[in-house]
Design a protein around this nucleic acid. Structure first.
Lengths: 305, 305
DNA sequence: ACTCATCTATAGACAGTACCTATGGATTCC
DNA sequence: GGAATCCATAGGTACTGTCTATAGATGAGT
């Protein structure tokens, strides 16, 4: 059985004539006759009575017709679904981003990306790093930017280390001195945010490794809220440097060096689901990351269809 | 799009490997790879991610798979339906018959037919001649035996004239005399049957053409009941000769000649729906009729598949 | 890190197919 | 009875779908 035979069968059934069915399918009448004959041979039954002028469905033909029509309609619906999907995803890029990256780093990346690829729409979804990993796994997004996490089905490429700095009010004794020791830090009320985040766990780990128990004054739910509290003198915090460049330049927040020289960083990666081939939009985005961060992104050698 | 491509797509989706899908479809792996590639080219989308070992459906592939499976299932159901239809009708013959023919003439025909074609089952459906015509029209039966009726879509071939004879009790004055006039007949209680049948209309017409009003004593519902009443002396009747041969031979009923020489007959035909080709069983049946009645039956020159 | 196994994709050859035109045979219409 | 129309067959041919052989890529094992 071939789809061309099914098409011939349906066309002949609808028109009662091999000649008119052939015209409709833009083939010659002997070709259509041969298609019908081949189908009847394979099904081992006559589908049409041949009259002097035209044809008429047999009982078998009448019985088979609904199935034939439904099968072709189903394939047409499948094709339509793919076309709709293509329309939706063609020229778009889904990016998953950890919150800190999404708010303070991704805008620069997107500005550069849009310069070079104005026709590609980008949809951003944010979450914690583990959530971003899952989005990539489930193909809810095509590309993820987050703290480096490992999974056998995901290809991660390190881009940069996010620098985390101690921050205080500009008139705080730490700011006047320009530096603070771990011992001093432990005595100040510490403002943190997002107890479940990798950032929170990082700060907690750094303090404990330094042998101090952090004096957590409050836990907020965002970097922005944290900045406002520090500006009002309610405490100090560790924040990603990318997130406070504007406040530091305007003098409302101060970066404090740690006397012992501790460097706190979060390695940040780009993640894609492992596959042989990536869409042009994904490849374009990875090229922008490569040029901005001057690192090799492995999938870039793969070709697309 | 070809069904072979759909089959390859489904097999690969189910097995996650072109090699195993090819094995399942009993083709080589490059053939399967080519089928998938052709399908993806026609649909203008990737259906599979190619991994190092095996393949995985893309989102587009996942979206298309249910449609592909449903289409193949639908065609399989269509094929199953035809197989079931074939099983029902293969080796069987549906015959529609007028009641008088079905009871007294058809048995001889069927005896002869079964001698020559023991493997063909015959299903008989009876009714009045107009009902038999409709059965042939609707293809509820393949062949009809009834009073000759005309329809543009039905091919009728005369077989014989059914002789209708006056019948009485053997000790009835008519039987003793061996004949009766129309005048005499009109004075006797006439027993008829099936007021709506062509036979009833025939008798009524013959009497009126002879200028007499039939003295209808009773109307029964079958030839058998009519015979029993005549045997009990309740009246006389006109009956098909084929239907009373046994009673005449055993002396329980008598055939009465009509003095004026009236001959009452019903022309009897075989009917088939017009078509170019007939099944072997239909052709076999028509051949038996041809040899029994020594008439040409037109469709016999047509060939079957 | 290297080698081997496994999988998909490509290239070239070729038998089979699906289409064409021409025309035969049958039926219908005038 | 002849013309028109329709379906079926025959012969020719360009194209297709499959094969084998092998290239290229990835993953597993050592």
């Amino acid at each position: 059985m071939e789809l061309a035979q099914i098409q011939a069968f349906i066309a002949a059934a609808q028109r009662g004539s091999f000649v008119r069915a052939a015209q409709a399918l833009i083939i010659t009448q002997p070709s259509l006759s041969a298609r019908i004959h081949a189908l009847e041979t394979e099904l081992n039954t006559m589908l049409f009575h041949r009259l002097g002028r035209g044809v008429r469905l047999t009982e078998a033909g009448k019985a088979f017709l609904p199935y034939a029509q439904r099968a072709l309609e189903t394939l047409e619906q499948g094709r339509d679904t793919l076309n709709a999907l293509e329309k939706v995803s063609s020229g778009t890029l889904q990016v998953g981003s950890a919150r800190a990256i999404g708010a303070y780093v991704l805008p620069d990346i997107l500005a550069r990306f849009r310069e070079q690829h104005p026709g590609i729409d980008v949809n951003i979804r944010t979450g914690r790093s583990t959530e971003v990993l899952q989005m990539v796994m489930d193909e809810e997004v095509q590309v993820g930017l987050a703290r480096s996490l490992k999974h056998p089905d995901v290809l991660s490429t390190w881009l940069y280390d996010e620098e985390i700095s101690l921050v205080s009010h500009p008139e705080h004794p730490f700011a006047l001195k320009g530096e603070a020791s771990i011992y001093d830090i432990a005595k100040e009320p510490l403002i943190l945010y997002d107890r479940d985040s990798s950032y929170f766990q990082l700060i907690d780990r750094v303090c404990r490794e330094a042998g101090v128990i952090p004096n957590v004054g409050m836990v907020l739910d965002s970097i922005e809220a944290t900045k406002r509290m520090i500006e009002r003198g309610f405490g100090i915090s560790f924040l990603p440097v990318h997130g406070i460049t504007r406040e530091v330049e305007s003098g409302t927040l101060a970066l404090i060096r740690i006397t012992e020289g501790h460097q706190v960083t979060l390695p940040t990666s780009v993640m894609v689901r492992r596959a042989r081939i990536y869409s042009p939009a994904v490849l374009a985005f990875l090229r922008v990351l490569k040029s901005m961060y001057e690192v090799d992104v492995p999938p870039l050698e793969a070709t697309s269809v």
